[in-house]
Write a protein that binds this DNA or RNA. Structure first.
Lengths: 152, 152
DNA sequence: GTCAGGTGGTTACAGATGTAACTGTCCATT
DNA sequence: AATGGACAGTTACATCTGTAACCACCTGAC
């Protein structure tokens, strides 16, 4: 019976992810009324330029319905516009509008600030160890998909 | 414009947490029809014995409504029973039933297996670095609560 | 004693999410 | 041409989640 949830890796990782994410999420949530899927889609489009919804999903690991809803939300905020593809009418190309690019610019400034704050808080060694560990996980586990359930 | 979501710590941590969590969550989801909050509550009660709902929430970082629902679900599965407190009638003491303890035992066996599998996959150094990094985050950020939003 | 404020726990409601089914389109085979 | 997958994206539905309001109860100040 020597089990403690607090030291179980899946639990610990989720806790850490929440701790680190929330302070940043609070920024885009309150400043721009943006949800996390919207922020991810905005970030993808901002850093890579024109993409399709499917590409956004692949880049930021979001389910296609999440992407669909995020794209609609960004469109309603007039931060993104859709264009049809000349050759394949199933596809929609997505581009940030000038307003969208402005928000993106402000957001990445906040992101950089936050990264610096984290670097200050978690001194260099903690941060490096964390990044190294995360790299290992990504490299090792990213292969096999494993099915998803209601966020549990 | 040198921003990439894929290297942004909040995003990376969330990805890693999902990768690591899902394979384990698949176990209790399919074997016992248990959700994550239920698993956490079961784990807390299994390892610490009698607790109140508030204590479970504090121990496993769950919102009190989540705990309330998880407790009800476990109760409906007959894995847990409530008892009133002699002195304070607001409080409910929660204990696992024999059936609950049996499930708990099976679950921690699975948890240990999974930890070993992870240790194999992520060789020793990756795992150690990760644990060290997580410890730093917990120690540093666990202090200030930061408000929560709809899971974003 | 009583009353105000705080606490343990539940619930109504609205927002978010995944699954599955669907629409429209493409393309390879016939 | 016609047709049977396969693919991009949307939507209906059920489930999950947090917020806020709530109930019952406790406690300390008066």
């Amino acid at each position: 019976m020597d089990f403690r949830l607090e030291t179980f890796l899946p639990y610990r990782l989720n806790q850490a992810a929440e701790l680190v994410s929330q302070r940043f999420a609070a920024q885009y949530r309150t400043r721009y009324r943006m949800t996390r899927p919207e922020w991810r889609a905005l970030a993808a489009l901002g850093s890579y330029g024109r993409m399709t919804a499917t590409e956004i999903g692949a880049n930021s690991s979001m389910h296609k319905t999440k992407v669909s809803r995020a794209v609609r939300a960004l469109e309603e905020k007039h931060w993104l516009k859709r264009s049809e593809d000349a050759a394949d009418r199933r596809i929609e190309h997505l581009d940030l509008t000038p307003a969208g690019r402005r928000i993106y610019g402000e957001m990445i400034a906040l992101a950089h600030e936050y990264e610096q704050e984290l670097a200050r808080l978690l001194d260099a060694s903690g941060l490096e160890q964390l990044q190294a560990g995360l790299a290992t996980i990504e490299a090792t586990l990213a292969v096999q998909p494993a099915r998803r359930g209601p966020s549990d």
